[in-house]
Write a protein that binds this DNA or RNA. Structure first.
Lengths: 223, 223
DNA sequence: TTTTGTGAACTAGTTCACAGCT
DNA sequence: AGCTGTGAACTAGTTCACAAAA
């Protein structure tokens, strides 16, 4: 019965990032159920099938409204629609990838992106010889200096940073200067941005080193 | 004065993954200081410079031993050595990338990997026409059916999964069957593995959707 | 009856603040 | 004096368990 705080007032976001990450996971799970023709699902069934916690699913969803039907569960198509709206996936989001190296080109063409409302509309790089060329899937590489102009024209909302660490901060500054409010950075070591800009980091070195730690521990008692 | 539990007994790991992730971040920070010629650093100075929390740095490190000198701080080269040993980076770790698509090829050639002890020694794929070819940086693509044999011969310890979601579980099973204990998966939706195998997920869809949520909230009150 | 939505209990993680070492 | 290492306090996140709704 609590008001769902739709539309977000200016204050700090009360919804944890762990929660929004899980919403994305619920969305995927429900899409699979929908595809399989399932009409309604209880939080328990959802939890069992996708290895989640039923209470947590209910708590997460309850932050945004009362989407369930007591005694029945959640109507799959309805909840899908609600989740897409909450996550802002009810419209196409233009994405730019900065850095047309191996990783940037791969990300620009990554088929997983397009499926849920993300559309990589441009690549950017500093290297003269790359500018004007296209990725295999046909995304054109532009001069990074034209980012502000093109970002506006193409309506870019998210910048994916796939540049060397040394350039990451400078590129981030430029991107933020052009009004971008959401950045996905693959750069090791993070970038600093002013308040009101959201950065998500994917740090492959940290991931691998954490795996290495795990192996190092295992080696100790397996010998 | 508490024993540092070096070498790990069989029981569940008492060190949180958040901690091991941070150790990796400390390692990077210290490497930068070392490069800059800094001899010793206090937890406070480290925290200030890299936007961390001093008490947390001390707590994290204290789990593995008493590396600091009271009144002085941490001797950079010593702590670097300790961290590399804790993270198992004092030896080269052979890595295999499974899936020679855009992403897999990019990851195999990703220069950030080699720097800290990881060595991508092989690519694997199912597609006949890819087998025998090489990535730009020269990593050979092998038939996935030869994974067990080659994994043994090359001493592969970590498998990076860059295959379509539909194949992820099958590939994970094969990799685990070949004795791999650490997996970095780029597949959306996670894979199931038996106990004793560690999986780290990098889920680009979740990351982007979480950013989308943030933008959707912002749009609400900026209109 | 079934299952949600949610306060309460619990668990994990972070930060404080200070005793004790150098 | 300066700074670590760490118990205590605090904060965030998860899970339990049940009243209320359908």
């Amino acid at each position: 019965m609590k008001p769902p705080n739709k539309g977000g007032r200016g204050g700090p976001d009360p919804v944890s990032e762990l929660t929004t990450n899980r919403l994305s996971i619920y969305l995927r799970a429900l899409a699979a159920l929908d595809k399989a023709g399932v009409r309604a699902v209880s939080s328990q069934a959802l939890a069992d099938q996708f290895h989640l916690n039923a209470a947590q699913i209910r708590k997460d969803l309850a932050q945004f409204g009362e989407f369930g039907v007591r005694g029945v569960g959640y109507v799959v198509t309805d909840l899908l629609r609600h989740l897409r709206e909450i996550l802002g996936l009810d419209r196409q989001l233009p994405v730019a990838v900065i850095g047309a190296g191996n990783l940037g080109l791969a990300l620009a063409d990554y088929s997983g992106f397009r499926i849920e409302g993300f559309d990589v509309v441009a690549l950017f790089d500093v290297a003269k010889h790359k500018i004007g060329r296209r990725s295999r899937a046909g995304v054109t590489i532009h001069d990074i200096r034209h980012f502000p102009r093109l970002a506006k024209r193409l309506g870019i909302r998210i910048a994916v940073l796939a540049v060397p660490h040394a350039q990451a901060q400078r590129v981030a500054d430029a991107v933020v200067g052009a009004g971008i409010k959401a950045i996905l950075s693959f750069s090791p070591g993070g970038v600093e941005v002013p308040g009101g800009v959201k950065v998500k980091r994917v740090d492959l070195t940290v991931s691998l080193e954490s795996l290495s730690y795990y192996l190092a521990q295992g080696d100790g008692h397996e010998s």
